[in-house]
Amino acid sequence: MEFRWLKQTNAAEAIVVFGGWAVGPDVFDHLKGPQDVLFVSDYRNLDTDLPDLSGCDHVTLLAWSFGVAAYAHWQEGHADPFDRKVAVNGTLAPVDAAHGIPPDVMAKTAEGLSEASFVQFLRRTFNAPQPPRVIDIDARRAELHAVAARGAAPAVVFDQAWISGRDRIFPSANQHRAWEGTTIRELPTVAHAPFDHFDSWQALIS
């Protein structure tokens, strides 16, 4: 796992973002708020400890896409530092025909990964053309294989799950099945990456 502070001011509140695959933190650049923000990425292994968050009065988890299951697997071997947990367009079973990304889709994505296919992935993620992004093909393919091999995560209770109706990565019907019994908030016309529909961190985590 890799960590990057997007904002670090010794604030009383912190948000830890377990991000999605290969997209990076710039999708959050426009979000405003007083909270410090730590971005987590690269789920090839989950052995790393989070930075010390004990000085914060309140810590929230925001887990997006593969970050949902990655967090839950990571949590199994660590003390829970979070007061609130919010999932966005991801599930605890990331590669699953009924509750996540269908296994055949995941396999084709990994085996066929190229700069051209990554451009297509980004288009599906945002439901719109995107500027080119740099991708380390070998590293990101290894990450996909690791996510698939890890399988479904241990059960972790999330306080809320956002589900986008136009998610072309995690089918919304699968997400609804996966989050049965959890408080769900829907974004009916929004893509897998919904963050441009928010202007503040608080709007995402409340």
Rank of each mutant, 00 (worst) to 15 (best):
F3A: 09
R4V: 08
W5K: 11
L6D: 12
L6F: 06
K7R: 15
N10R: 13
A11F: 04
E13T: 15
I15F: 05
F18T: 09
V23F: 07
P25D: 09
P25K: 08
D26R: 15
H30I: 08
L31E: 00
K32D: 12
D36G: 04
F39C: 03
F39D: 08
F39A: 10
S41L: 07
R44G: 05
L46G: 01
T48Y: 04
D49W: 02
D49H: 14
L50I: 08
G55A: 12
H58P: 02
H58G: 03
T60P: 02
L62F: 10
A63E: 07
G67R: 13
G67A: 04
Y71W: 13
E76V: 04
G77R: 13
P81G: 09
F82H: 13
R84I: 01
V86C: 00
N89Y: 03
G90W: 06
V95N: 06
D96Q: 01
A98R: 14
I101D: 04
D104K: 15
V105W: 10
V105C: 07
A110T: 06
G112Y: 08
L113H: 04
A116K: 10
S117Y: 06
F121R: 03
F121N: 02
R123D: 06
R124K: 15
R124G: 05
F126N: 10
N127R: 14
A128F: 00
P129W: 10
Q130F: 05
P131Q: 12
P132S: 11
R133L: 13
V134F: 09
D136C: 04
I137R: 02
A142P: 03
L144N: 11
A146N: 12
A149N: 14
A152S: 14
A152N: 11
A155H: 12
V156E: 08
F158C: 08
F170R: 02
A173E: 15
H176P: 00
R177P: 01
W179V: 00
G181F: 09
G181D: 05
R185C: 06
A191T: 08
A191G: 07
H192P: 05
P194D: 04
D196L: 09
H197D: 11
F198R: 10
S200A: 10
W201N: 13
W201P: 12
S206T: 15
S206D: 15
